[in-house]
Simulated scan of single mutants.
Amino acid sequence: MIADETITEDSDQMTEEEDRNEGKFASQSNVEAVRRALSCPYCMAYMTAPIFTCVTGHTFCNECKPLLQRCPTCQASLDGPRNYTLEEMANDMKVSCQFDVNGCTFFDSTSNMRIHELECSLNDLPRNET
């Protein structure tokens, strides 16, 4: 009977620990998903409104649009509509600096992040890609 209780307690502790680790992984996955969704595929900076799309729906930033002749992702025409949903998300969401892997703790709106990342003292360190 005692062995069964010990096993149950150990498995409960393991489950709680796994839950915490899973929560950390989910949180990091969410951060990366937001970072990918809000990053321009051409300049890699966070996009701010207006956010444009190619005819197949890939997004790119306002600063890069004049530099592009074709979509940087699929080479389609740039005549797609603006992505108002992503613009709202970019306006409302606070994000971490892409150099957080190097120790930067700056956390703010995407418009402030564009400015910060250009000046971030940790941007010259190699970035660990996941």
Results as ranks from 00 to 15, higher is better:
I2V: 07
I2E: 14
I2A: 13
I2Y: 04
I2G: 02
A3G: 12
D4S: 14
D4V: 12
E5H: 11
E5P: 00
E5K: 14
T6G: 02
T6S: 08
T8M: 05
E9Q: 13
S11V: 07
D12R: 15
T15V: 01
E17T: 05
D19H: 15
R20A: 09
E22Y: 14
K24S: 09
K24R: 13
S27I: 01
S29M: 15
E32H: 07
E32V: 10
A33M: 12
V34P: 00
V34L: 14
A37G: 04
S39M: 05
S39D: 05
Y42N: 15
A45I: 00
Y46S: 04
Y46R: 01
A49G: 07
P50E: 05
P50R: 13
P50Q: 05
P50D: 02
I51M: 00
I51S: 05
F52V: 04
C54F: 02
G57S: 06
T59I: 11
F60M: 15
F60S: 02
C61L: 00
K65M: 06
P66T: 06
Q69I: 00
Q69D: 10
Q69T: 08
R70M: 02
P72H: 03
T73E: 09
Q75E: 07
A76V: 01
S77N: 12
S77R: 09
L78E: 08
D79H: 08
P81E: 08
N83F: 05
Y84M: 15
L86E: 10
E87Y: 02
E87N: 03
M89C: 14
N91L: 11
M93N: 06
K94F: 09
S96P: 12
C97H: 04
Q98Y: 09
V101K: 15
V101F: 13
G103T: 11
D108K: 12
S111F: 02
I115S: 05
E117A: 01
E119W: 00
C120N: 08
C120H: 08
C120Y: 08
S121Y: 01
L122P: 01
P126C: 01
P126G: 07
R127L: 07
N128T: 11
T130N: 13
